[in-house]
Amino acid sequence: MRDPNRANRYPLRRRQVVEHLVTDMDDLLVVAGLGAPTWDATAAGDRDLTCPLWGAMGGTAMIGLGLALARPDRRVLVVTGDGDMLMGLGSLATVALQRPANLSVVVLDNERYGETGMQATHTAGPTDLAAVAHACGFEQAATLHDEEELDRATPAILEGEGPLFFAVKVRAEAPPLVLPPRDGAHLKDRFRMALIGTE
């Protein structure tokens, strides 16, 4: 019998996972999905080469794909939530078909819709996102449950041959909001200025 409250006891904490992945990775291109992963990414340091999304639900992995195809010389990390990923499941098939070697998709899976009141998502039920990704054609797709598994997967996430998919089971919690700038045009322009030197 599946325990609907199991995510309240998951050992991994979302803020620590994101900090662990992006700290000191100055060249990493990050796309952060709405809303909690965007707050997590900002808590780890507001940086020009992160594109934090306040909207675009269901589109985070596809923004990552466009960026990864545009810049095959750079590692692209998509950090998003289970709600966003569920809304764009088809994009896993689209990404897998393109086989971008430089793209990693990390889903912070707390089995909740965090921004709307912590309602259960489908991953609190029977849906296994890593299995979906694998079935869509991601050769490397796994679920990570604790620090040891995360540490073991980190070199692959940051340097391994993509496309890679990891569902990281994180505790269902709502850490304090840490907000990036709200203006989408500003966020885009500063990203491009930092990456290619032009708006």
Partner: peptide, 11 residues
């Protein structure tokens, strides 16, 4: 969504 990412990367 993809083309927004492409533009971020200069394409």
């Amino acid at each position: 969504a993809m083309l927004a990412g492409s533009w971020l990367g200069g394409r």
